[in-house]
Write a protein that binds this DNA or RNA. Structure first.
Lengths: 241, 241
DNA sequence: GAGTTTTGATGTCTGCACACATCGGTGTCA
DNA sequence: TGACACCGATGTGTGCAGACATCAAAACTC
């Protein structure tokens, strides 16, 4: 009752498709889904429309509802990301997000140093120092919270709405990293200082220093996580012409 | 006739919302939309469901269909990007995409040098040299085509499906740049060589050189376009806690 | 001001007509 | 006789109309 029926239908089909349970090329009939999910046609139709806009299925007359291959999915949609994180491809999704983050955050730091509003800069500095303290004291949950806030502020301060939109996904990777025990109780001392460096550089408008310090953080986290990813298969999306 | 009714309804409402014609907070009634667009209720409902999944509207009982502020839109959705490119915010959208591209492409080049399949590397080299020739001969349309192909191959070769998915948007920015007369008839000589450098570096698996050459290309294009963007207002998305 | 009732919009279900892609049969021609 | 083009039957999504259920905002009562 808490969520609407069509929403539940979307979740059901979305998770099954992304998990590979419903493979690409598999065709379903609207009528069959009605009885399977025990909902009416209108609910099915609304759910299919949303899945269609996400690139997960296509509908063809006289054929039915066909599941599309992963290369057609919208990899930036929050729902698709969530479903992938809940599937066997969780590792590959985390790597993709981490690579994206590693590319974007230094650029965001550079832009934030140029454009961020003054209050945001001040808050960023406060959070960086609070992070350092929490890290020294081994307060893991508080450190995670501040870490998410720091990187959210950084992305938001870039003034690029696409960068800012990655906040949610970044939070996923950070929490995922701590939940999976990939974070030590006491974060690396240099990394803590680099966060402070980023905040201070942004605060004084030094875009080059901000980018460089952020880049250092990203390179460290990437090298830290790369060990666990080597076995993840990479997917090459063909070029559409 | 070629497009379905619900698709036309999505286009109609999507363009009007993104253009600001239907401002944030504006509420509509499904019944009212039926008569306005002269379609049945089911068409309206399916369209609203899709717009809801894009974060453009929310539905509340007893209130209606409320338009959400831009901070809630999904800035990575291809439809949203297309609507923004067709609106007054075209400049801001192009800048966001260019900033994203500038951040991602060097990282993609680095990854491609490590992971790209052999045939893709060869094709990339061919395209780079073809680009250089087309640039020297002032064949503008052919150059644009090859330019798009080059950067598509690069992103695709990274093996990161999120990077690869930016192909379409990158094509938009490149065509938009030439259409708007921002491209000279004879591209910068050094830039042409940098493209070759990227391809060669990827071909021989030199990830550092690939990143550096790609970074040079990006820095040049950004500085080239920055003049036209200075007047575009930046939007700061608040941090959600 | 707190609790209750009313109200009005979305949410869900159902039956029907239509459009149209696919498939198989029919007819024509070589 | 065989190959091919045509064409109608069939099945499925698409669109429509109307009914009832649900639930939260708003009005009302105490």
């Amino acid at each position: 009752m808490t969520t609407s029926l069509h929403h539940r239908a979307i979740e059901n089909l979305g998770t099954r498709i992304v998990s590979g349970n419903l493979p690409a090329g598999h065709v379903m009939l609207a009528e069959q889904l009605e009885v399977e999910l025990k909902v009416s046609r209108s609910v099915i139709r609304e759910a299919v429309r949303v899945l269609q806009s996400l690139g997960l299925v296509e509908t063809t007359k006289r054929v039915g509802i066909r599941v599309l291959p992963p290369s057609r999915w919208n990899p930036f949609d929050p729902q698709v990301i969530r479903w992938r994180l809940a599937s066997d491809a969780r590792g590959a999704q985390l790597r993709s997000l981490a690579e994206l983050r590693a590319a974007v955050e230094p650029a965001a730091a550079e832009l934030a140093a140029q454009n961020a509003p003054a209050p945001l800069r001040l808050e960023l500095v406060d959070v960086a120092y609070a992070m350092r303290d929490a890290g020294h004291n081994g307060e893991v949950p508080r450190f995670l919270e501040l870490d998410i806030q720091f990187h959210s502020l950084l992305l938001s301060g870039s003034g690029n709405e696409m960068f800012a939109n990655l906040m949610g996904q970044v939070a996923e990777t950070l929490t995922g990293r701590t939940v999976h025990g990939l974070m030590p109780d006491h974060p690396h001392e240099a990394a803590l200082q680099w966060h402070v460096d980023v905040a201070e550089a942004i605060s004084r408008g030094d875009s080059a220093a901000a980018r460089e310090a952020s880049d250092r953080i990203m390179r460290r986290t990437m090298s830290q996580m790369s060990d666990t990813w080597t076995e993840q298969p990479r997917v090459f999306i063909p070029v559409r012409r």
